[in-house]
């Protein structure tokens, strides 16, 4: 059998599965950011008429999934697999959404790396011929994340300069073996990397080494270099984490600065009082499905190296003094037919 592996961490998808539709939803704050116009749905407020933030997040994920399926001109029964995850304990949002959708489901926890994790797995399923269509989605909500990981919303606290604001948003894509749309050509799966950062207000620094190692592994495995990409994207490192990533990759001999964006830096404006930037599963999900895929479809970008970064901490691990492990998964997205 012909090997589809490249080097240690990368695989090549010979059948080039396509992303045939996408959908994104955001809250008010995200819609007021620089990318506001690109998102499909903007919620009128953070609760959206539901009884709890958790129910709102479930509805957000359900809504983007249904829109993505509709946009692909499919029915729920045409989708063979649903890959999703979120930040809440026991991935409540994804489980409850899967209950509604009734599609065979793999629940994922990759923290904020869930978007590219789910796309990786969906694309492998489709490329291998085990699925015709796979739905890949994730969500996060500022209010649900805040109450689980930090403080009650109404408590008067200050954010650290390296702190990040959890994005209220959800994104979904349908990966398919036929149809039109950008293709997924390579997948580089990240390893868990931990350099001993314990500060929960400094996730960018905790995740930056994971981003650096996965990007480096990708270049080594494929023999490519930064110039082969129109855009290199990381998930939610924020301004400080982005700076560290550029600096560390420079030391490794890769100059990415001119073609590199971080979703956490793009989604909010400097004036929006979010310190280092955005974070959360929804951060890379909405920037990818709302902004980057549209730019590829419009032809402004041809080949994108898309990564989502995750900080794999729990409230228990931080209270017990453990450091914060990080991870990043990469997918290569190319425009057009292959």
């Amino acid at each position: 059998m012909e090997s589809k592996r490249l080097g240690g961490q990368t695989i090549i998808l010979k059948n080039r599965p396509k992303i045939i539709s996408n959908s994104s939803i955001v809250g008010q704050k995200e819609s007021q950011g620089p990318l506001g116009e690109f998102f499909d749905i903007v919620m009128p407020d953070n609760l959206w008429g539901e009884d709890s933030w958790e129910k709102t997040e479930c509805r957000m994920l359900k809504e983007v999934c249904e829109r993505a399926i509709e946009g692909a001109n499919k029915k729920n029964t045409d989708i063979n697999y649903f890959f999703a995850g979120d930040l809440l304990n026991q991935i409540m949002t994804a489980n409850f959404t899967a209950r509604t959708l009734g599609i065979p489901f793999f629940g994922l926890f990759g923290a904020c790396s869930t978007m590219t994790e789910s796309i990786s797995l969906g694309a492998i399923m489709v490329d291998g011929g085990y699925a015709d269509n796979a739905l890949c989605a994730t969500s996060s909500h500022f209010c649900t994340a805040e109450r689980q990981f930090r403080y009650p919303l109404e408590q008067g606290t200050q954010m650290a300069p390296t702190g990040q604001w959890t994005v209220t948003g959800a994104g979904a894509v349908v990966v398919s073996n036929e149809g039109n749309g950008p293709s997924i050509t390579h997948i580089t799966t990240g390893k868990v990397v931990d350099y001993g950062i314990k500060d929960v207000n400094n996730m960018g620094a905790a995740m930056a080494p994971a981003a650096v190692e996965t990007i480096k592994a990708h270049f080594e495995d494929t023999g490519r270099n930064p110039q082969d990409y129109d855009l290199i994207v990381t998930g939610d490192l924020g301004r400080f984490g982005r700076e560290l990533t550029i600096d560390m990759l420079n030391k490794e001999g890769y100059d990415i600065a001119s073609r590199y964006i971080d979703c956490g830096c793009e989604i909010y404006g400097e004036e929006q009082d979010v310190q280092s930037g955005g974070s959360g599963c929804g951060c890379s999900a909405v920037v990818f499905s709302g902004f980057i895929l549209k730019k590829i479809e419009e032809g402004e970008l041809n080949r994108v190296l898309m990564g989502s970064t995750g900080a794999l901490l729990s409230t228990t691990s931080t209270q017990q003094g453990e450091s914060i492990p990080g991870i990043m998964h990469l997918v290569v997205i190319e425009k057009g037919e292959g």
Binding site: Y151, P152, L153, E154, Q155, G156, T157, Q158, M159
Partner: peptide, 26 residues
Amino acid sequence: YDDIGKIGGAGSIVPITGFSNSIVSP
């Protein structure tokens, strides 16, 4: 009070109003 806290920091946590805030908000 959370907006006051964003500006005031310790200035709004230490007085007894901050104590009240820390019980009412959860």
